[in-house]
């Protein structure tokens, strides 16, 4: 174990991350301002200016740079803090930390929303203000609530520190106990193949469903037309497909990881079912959108479904259960 190298990597991430945080914060604020100005009808000249035209691409590039920085840190974790047999240098396992754990989740969501926002910018320019505004807000939320750079992976860091302390204390019994616990976390959670598939599918789905939500608002208010409902449906079907695959892939993981623990009526699972049912209803309602009143009903379902998605995401942090991060 090379704990000093690990701490140095952590400090480097925090240092470079502080610069990135300010840069991304400024870009997020500019996106919000641009969105508001365009909504206010003063965006015509703004969007013709070169900086405004390249703003989305620059923002996404900086977000991607932050993601690469996180990837570098994860590789350093793999290199510097392997789990070793106490008293020897024999490596038992190395961490393969996914890039969407702890504070990185919201950042990953914002990154994928940036990808979709850039596509919307190019294909549906009329929808740019709403996307800019939402992108800026999501980016600032990711930096303010769960900044992945300033205190990288605090829970994982606690585990590594506990392991280092156990090794320094020199008590073989304690070392074995800590090692068993950490190995269980490594095999069942961090390095699990499901961890590399289940969460990212859901976060990409959430990003697509955020676009769908934004496109559902104008038809609900009686504005917008087929462009908005088409956009809402287009991103909802992508999000729903990824959501369904992601949720299904979570099932064998529950069997493997939670074994006999009752999980079926867990609050997070309950809310996920509510969200999935609502999106199913939204997609079916869209099929009948040409009937009187159905377009607005579909738009309403698109908005309510996304509110259920937010509630599902928050449930994990608010209500204790087997799927809780509390």
């Amino acid at each position: 174990m090379d704990f000093a190298d690990y701490l140095a990597a952590r400090d480097s991430l925090a240092g470079a991350g502080a610069v990135l945080t300010w840069l991304l914060g400024a870009l997020g604020a500019v996106l919000i301002a641009a969105g508001i100005l365009e909504f206010a009808g003063r965006g015509e000249r703004l969007v013709r200016m070169l900086p405004a035209r390249i703003l989305p691409a620059v923002t996404l590039a900086v977000q991607a740079a932050g993601f690469l920085l996180l990837a570098w840190f994860h590789l350093e974790v793999r290199r510097t803090v392997p789990l070793t047999m106490p008293g020897t240098d024999q490596v038992l396992a190395r961490y393969a930390l996914p890039l969407w754990i702890e504070g990185e989740k919201l950042y990953f969501w914002a990154l994928w929303f940036g990808v979709f926002a850039l596509i919307v910018h190019r294909r549906q320019p009329a929808f740019r203000p709403a996307v800019d505004l939402a992108w800026g807000v999501l980016l600032l939320l990711a930096l303010a609530l769960t900044n992945p750079f300033t205190d990288p992976l605090p829970r994982f860091h606690q585990e590594v520190v506990m392991y280092r302390d156990a090794l320094l204390a020199g008590n073989p019994m304690e070392q074995v106990q800590v090692l068993e616990m950490l190995y269980g976390r490594l095999a069942g959670f961090y390095n699990s193949a499901y961890m590399w598939i289940h969460p990212p599918l859901l976060f990409v789905a959430y990003a697509a469903l955020l676009v769908s939500f934004l496109a559902s608002i104008p038809p609900l208010l009686g504005r917008g037309g087929s462009l908005h409902s088409g956009l809402a449906y287009g991103y909802a079907r992508l999000g729903y497909l990824l959501l369904t695959v992601g949720l299904l892939i979570g099932y064998p993981w529950t069997r493997e990881a939670w074994k006999d623990q009752p999980w079926w009526w867990d609050p997070k699972i309950n809310m996920t079912l509510v969200m999935w049912v609502l999106y199913t209803a939204f997609l079916h309602a869209h099929l009948y959108r040409h009937r009187p009143g159905m377009a607005r009903l579909a738009a309403g379902l698109g908005v309510v479904s996304f509110l259920a998605l937010i509630f599902t995401y928050v449930t994990t942090y608010v209500i204790p259960g087997v799927h809780s991060y509390q």
Partner: peptide
């Protein structure tokens, strides 16, 4: 859906 919502509220 309503039952799941009830379950969430009850758990909370």
């Amino acid at each position: 859906g309503v039952l799941s919502l009830y379950g969430t509220a009850y758990s909370f």
